[in-house]
């Protein structure tokens, strides 16, 4: 118990981490507002390329805030940031390859 007490005294400053907590809540509101906007768009914008594009952009923005702020990646070293981001290129390739494939299957059956 003595050790616990020691640590507590050591960090008594209530302002410690206040800025970080502010950033956390700011991120929460951003995520909440974007999600609410997505709902609004889901029922107001007609289905099409525009709607899908808006959704994808909003998803990437949300991912940026979750990974950057919540997972703290924005504040890591540059090498770590790139080590995580560069492999995602493979996913971009996967999307391109398999969506073209899906389209080709559609053309073959229904085209």
């Amino acid at each position: 118990m003595a050790e616990v007490h020691h640590h507590h005294v050591h960090n008594q400053d209530p302002e410690a981490g206040a800025e970080q907590r502010k950033a956390i809540w700011k991120t929460f509101w951003i995520l909440l507002i974007i999600t609410s906007l997505e709902f609004l768009i889901a029922f107001t914008v007609p289905h099409g390329v525009l709607k899908v594009s808006i959704f994808i952009i909003m998803t990437i923005v949300k991912a940026f805030y979750i990974v950057g702020e919540f997972m703290h990646l924005k504040h890591e070293t540059k090498t770590l940031i790139w080590s995580i981001l560069v492999p995602v290129i493979f996913v971009a390739w996967l999307i391109l390859a398999l969506l073209l494939e899906g389209n080709a299957i559609f053309e073959a059956i229904f085209g």
Partner: peptide, 10 residues
């Protein structure tokens, strides 16, 4: 992405 493929092929 597999979901996307299936969706695009229907």
């Amino acid at each position: 992405v597999a979901y996307g493929t299936a969706r695009f092929s229907f």
